[in-house]
Write a protein that binds this DNA or RNA. Structure first.
Lengths: 183, 183
DNA sequence: TCCTTAAGTAAGTACTTACTTGCATTATTA
DNA sequence: TAATAATGCAAGTAAGTACTTACTTAAGGA
């Protein structure tokens, strides 16, 4: 891994633990195993480094693929999409912490990232559920709220069993359709 | 309003806009119309002031009252509870911003505040819905997620009409019961 | 062998921040 | 009116922080 990458990686960890203001360039450099001078040779400011971190880690999960598998019944699709979303949220837990902690400092950037994210989800979920976008938004807001509650606020990891149960329940509630059978 | 209160009030506004580290004691004092020296006469440190702010604004909405009105049909109760929760979230939007922005710095304090909050909600909603606590948690996670999405991330205010629609939809989804009629 | 590139070290600059001290001033109260 | 309490002002301290400069070292390729 190149020096540049190592710095971004370290910054990512540092920002997600301490927030933008709390993280110091000195510690980021130390974590990257690099001198502070080197850090500033690669990035002209802390803010620039922060922006690189945002860009690198704000990848949106690939749910189009799932929704395209037309052979599946809608509930099954929805379950898969939900699983993918939840997994992706879990994988980016630290990144989400950064977003949350800087929500007041970087309003526009964060709103933009988030908007892209939910726009895609909205339309895909709406298509699967064959309902309006409002219901679709409620569906993934529910997932999102559940994830934030458990993993961010309560600091509890959602295990696979719980995830499955919650997803089944959500899908059941939103489709009016029980467990694994088609309706 | 006494000096002490004015300081806490100003700190509240300042913290919610800039986060704990971003807010300076100088600005808080200025906002309170008080000298910085006075601020430190009342609170021995910035952290102590922050803790007072947390305590003062972490009041939980009074939903027991609603759930006790036994005359109402459960869907109606649920709607009222949801409305109360959403209103309370909206009213404390700034406070929630503080919580979010310091989620990494004050893990235990925030987890504690949040835990109290959802524990009560869980049991009340479960009682009304007559289901398990998991479903109840999903119900208010949905509300919570929706609120965070719109008001915190997208910076859009949820107006009364939207709130009503979302609540109706949620109640409908979770009870399998349409609009304002009993089922 | 010489030159270029990537990195480190040491030191420092300019600025901010939480927090303090000493003294003067104003308002309150006895 | 005299004493007491609450506040402001000016100035300062100690520590931290982003960022810079000047110089050195090590490695690899031509």
């Amino acid at each position: 891994m190149g020096t540049r990458e190592r710095i971004v990686e370290a910054a990512y960890r540092c920002f997600s633990q301490k927030g933008y203001l709390g993280a110091t360039t000195r510690e980021i450099a130390r974590l990257a195993g690099v001198s502070e001078v080197t850090l500033f040779r690669y990035f002209k400011s802390k803010r620039e480094l922060f922006e690189k971190v945002l860009k690198k880690f704000s990848v949106i999960p690939d749910i189009e693929r799932i929704s395209a598998e037309s052979s599946l019944p809608p509930e099954e699709k929805l379950r898969k999409v939900a699983k993918e979303i939840l997994l992706s949220l879990k994988g980016k837990r630290n990144f989400i912490r950064i977003l949350l902690s800087e929500v007041s400092l970087y309003e526009e950037e964060i709103a933009e990232i988030y908007e892209k994210f939910i726009e895609r989800l909205d339309s895909i979920v709406a298509q699967i559920l064959k309902t309006d976008k409002e219901t679709a938004r409620l569906f993934h807001s529910s997932l999102f709220g559940y994830f934030l509650s458990e993993e961010i606020f309560l600091r509890r990891e959602i295990n696979e069993k719980e995830a499955k149960e919650v997803i089944n329940k959500l899908v059941e509630i939103f489709t009016g359709c029980r467990s694994e059978k088609n309706c």
